[in-house]
Simulated scan of single mutants.
Amino acid sequence: MPVLATPAWRLECAAVLFDMDGTLVDSSRCVDRTWRAWCARHGLDAEALFRVSHGRRNHETVALVAPHLDVAREVADLVRAEEACLDGIVPVPGAPELLAALPRDRWAVVTSAWRRLAGLRLRAAGLPEPGVLVTADDVAAGKPDPEGYLKAAADLGVEPERCVVLEDAPAGLAAARAAGMRAVAVRTTMGDGRLAARWSVDDLEALRYEED
Rank of each mutant, 00 (worst) to 15 (best):
A40Y: 09
E129Y: 07
V16Y: 00
S28Y: 11
A176R: 00
G43D: 10
R33P: 06
D26F: 08
G142W: 08
G126S: 02
A95S: 00
R106W: 08
H59T: 07
L166F: 03
L17N: 01
H59P: 04
L99Q: 00
P160Y: 07
G126R: 03
D45P: 04
E60R: 05
C163A: 03
P144R: 07
A185K: 13
D45F: 06
L78M: 14
R51Y: 08
D19N: 03
A169N: 08
R177A: 13
A84P: 00
D212L: 14
L117P: 01
E205M: 15
A174D: 13
A174C: 12
R194C: 09
H68P: 06
W35M: 04
G191V: 01
M181Q: 02
A174H: 13
A46T: 14
R29G: 15
P170N: 03
T23K: 02
H68Y: 13
A100N: 09
R57K: 10
A95Y: 03
L207A: 00
D137W: 07
L207C: 00
G148F: 11
P91C: 04
V158I: 14
M20H: 09
E159M: 11
G191H: 12
A5Y: 13
A154D: 14
E211K: 15
L99K: 00
L150R: 13
A154E: 14
L173G: 01
G142S: 11
K143I: 05
G191I: 01
G22D: 01
E47H: 10
P128H: 10
R56A: 12
V109F: 02
P144Q: 05
T61Q: 00
L64S: 09
L122F: 03
G191M: 03
V109N: 01
W199I: 05
P7R: 15
L11D: 01
E47Y: 03
A118H: 01
P103L: 09
E211S: 14
M20C: 15
V109R: 00
A140P: 08
L64Y: 08
R198V: 14
G22W: 09
V132F: 01
E147W: 12
A84W: 00
L156R: 09
V184Y: 04
R36M: 12
L173H: 06
D45M: 11
D32A: 13
V134N: 00
S200Q: 15
R56Q: 07
P146E: 11
P144Y: 09
A48K: 10
P103A: 11
A40R: 15
T6N: 07
D168Y: 04
P170D: 08
D192L: 08
A101H: 07
R187Q: 10
G55K: 08
D21T: 07
L166P: 00
Y209F: 15
E147M: 10
A118M: 08
E147N: 09
